[in-house]
Every structure is written in structure tokens, then in C-alpha cells.
Amino acid sequence: MPFYLKERIEDIKARHIVRRYYGKKLPRAEKIAMTWMAIMAFWLIVSGTLSWQNLAVGGSISLIISSFMYENLTDDLRYEGSFIKKVLTLAFIQIPQYAFIMIFQLLESNFRVAKHALFLGINPGIVRLETDLRSATGTTLLANSITLTPGTLTLDVAKKLDKTYLYVHWIDVKTLNMKKAGDEIKGDVERWLGKIFW
């Protein structure tokens, strides 16, 4: 098979996988349950007590809210087989891992900004990246993570022809190649987000 056809066929296969999984979102009951858990956790932290009146009021009101607003929070989550396993891995492995790694990235970027402010060896530029994430929530979180990782700031997000592009202001431009710049800037964040979101 000629090489130009090979690239094209791989592109079509990737697009087919995406189409197939877009039809396979979470069922409605699981969406409602997940939204209810998130709202209930926030209510427990904000109210701060554990009496039964508090639990009853919070549970019923968050059930009413989650019964009609379930699409906003959980529409972009990846579908997996078991619901309980998904919730447990999300709450106890994936979110703490993401927070831990982002804290260290933020510390490194603070030191980098201090170094640039003292010695001013900057070479700024606006480059374009391509991501594999397609959903709105995943793209938003990726843009936020790129802003907090060292030396980069997201300017805009554009969607063209089923692909998502990010415009990134890079304070120390090393390469203009889209793939190499993507590896340099996104790092592992995109892979971790790709496990959770589309």
C-alpha cells in the first residue's frame, strides 16, 4: 500500500472510532447519579454538618436539580463497563493524581517565571497545536492545564473539520513543527485527560 494512502486510512479509522463512541455515552440514570454525587459532596462541604435534616434537605434538592441538569456536567465522560468502578477510579485515583501532578507543574512554572523576570532571556511566539480531545469539557481542562504548565498560555481554541486546534503563546519558542511543539507543551496531560473525557 502506498504511504499516502496509509495515512489517509489511519485517519479514517480514527474518525470511525470516534463516531462509534459518540453514540455510546453514559446512560441517563448513571448521568443523574453522578451529578447527584457531585452536588451532594459540594453541599456537604459547604453546609458543614452531618445531621439528618441537613442530609434530607440536601439530598432531595440535589436530586431535583440533577434530574434536569444532568447533561451539563457528565455529557463528555467516557463510557466504561461498570459504573461503580468508574466512580471509584475517578474519585480516588484519577482526580488526586491529576491534582498532585498539576501542583508540581505549577511550582515549576512559578520558578520559571521568576527566572525570566530576573534575567529576561525570552523569545516569545504564538504557535498552533493539534489535540486528540474533542469534547468541550476536555478541551477546556486541557487549555487550563496548558496555561498552568511552565512557559505557555492558551490564546484560543478552534475547531476545523472534526479536529481541535489550540493557539498557544509560548514564552521560549523552540520549534514550529506542530507535532514536536505538541509533545513539548502538552506532555502527559493530554493522555491523562484522554482517559476521562472525549
Binding site: 512554572s109 512559578n110 525570566h116 523576570a117 530576573l118 525570552i122 498552568l148
Partner: peptide, 27 residues
């Protein structure tokens, strides 16, 4: 303090936004 120094010393809006965002968030 380093974020404020960066806001004073960087040349244009976008590089100043670098300093303000990261240093405010981390601090």
C-alpha cells in the same frame, strides 16, 4: 513578589499575563 516583578519587567500584554496568572495562582 516575583510575579509583580515580572509584570513590571516583561515587554507586552501576553508575557505580562504569563507572570500574573501563574504567580497569582501559585502564591
Amino acid at each position: 513578589v516575583f510575579g509583580a516583578l515580572g509584570i513590571l519587567r516583561f515587554p507586552d500584554v501576553y508575557t505580562r499575563l504569563h507572570a500574573s496568572t501563574k504567580c497569582d495562582t501559585g502564591g
